[in-house]
Amino acid sequence: MKSENEESKVLENIEANEGKSKTNNQESIENKNLSTSMNSSLRVLDYLLILLILAIPVVNIIAILKWSFSKGININKRNFARATLILSIVAVMIITASSLFFKPDGPSGWAAEEVTAALANGFVPGGLTRNYGQGITREEAVNLLVRVYEKARQETVTPADPKLIKDTENEGVLKAAALGIVSVASGQTVEFRPNDPVPRQEMAVFMLRTALAVKPKQDFNKEMQVTFADAQKIQSWAQEGIYFAFNNKIFSSYEERIAPTMTLNREEGIICAQRLYEVVAR
């Protein structure tokens, strides 16, 4: 009996071992098949299917993430997905950096037509043909206006004596002094402050003086016709200039305000020059 029991146990152990062996073999075969599947080359049809999925919005993002990080994905598909993900991240970073640090150098859309006209008329010095959103300086502003005068009168202005202005020898500023656009007194040296920004009321005065230099006998409608909500901010010396600019549609108001102390940028200064030319060329 003992021998039979021992034989029975031996047979059971053999069967159990055979079962385990079969299971292990089956798992080994499955793992081998899985490994083969994961490492197999992708067919043309596989690539076409991948590209089709990537063309679908939202679905493409989900697919890329799944293929990149899920288990059991074909290694070639996974590498392709990860490469695509990396390139996408790099592209987003480049586009973001470009939008922050490399802004378009042309004028704003609303200003483009008049800036283009001013360029065609030769009013804009080379230094003002970029960075249109940058604040315009006093020196740059009067250079624009001198060019308006010279085109309107078809003559070249002779610069004033450089000794009259102590902080610049810029030819355009000296021409503006000769025309009376910039105030100077005979025998005295004045400070022009060429690099200071230009408030609207100061630009208005420069433009009125330019218009009167072009047409000394012309009535340019510089009387007050509208009361602005911020009229108290207009300096007494600038009132005629402000109303001249507004009445002749060089300046416009916003919510009944004229903003006399607001400084101009380059494209606004260029537009002022173009509109002034249209006024004096009538």
Rank of each mutant, 00 (worst) to 15 (best):
A177F: 04
L45Q: 14
G109P: 08
V157L: 06
N17A: 09
S108I: 05
A231M: 03
I75S: 13
S88W: 12
Y277N: 00
N24H: 09
P159C: 02
E30A: 15
M224A: 03
I165W: 08
P104M: 06
R153I: 06
G109W: 07
V90D: 12
L119G: 10
A63C: 04
F123T: 02
Y47G: 01
L11R: 14
V124N: 00
V115D: 04
S70E: 11
R130P: 05
L11S: 08
P57I: 01
S236Q: 12
Y243W: 03
L42G: 02
T261R: 10
F102V: 10
L51S: 11
S21H: 11
D46S: 01
A118E: 10
Y243Q: 02
W237Q: 01
N131W: 07
A120K: 13
R193I: 12
M224W: 02
K175Y: 03
S40T: 08
A16Y: 14
R282L: 09
G109T: 13
G172P: 06
D105S: 09
V280I: 06
N60L: 01
V214G: 06
A281T: 08
T23L: 14
K2M: 11
E268Q: 15
W237H: 03
T158V: 15
A211P: 13
V279R: 05
C272N: 15
V44N: 10
I250M: 10
K66T: 11
M1V: 11
E7H: 11
Y254F: 14
T129Y: 00
T36H: 12
S98Q: 12
P194Q: 03
P197Q: 03
E171K: 07
D196C: 06
G127H: 07
Q218T: 14
L145A: 01
E27D: 13
V226S: 06
A152S: 06
I95C: 07
Q201I: 00
T137I: 05
G241V: 05
E15I: 15
V198S: 01
V279M: 05
F251A: 06
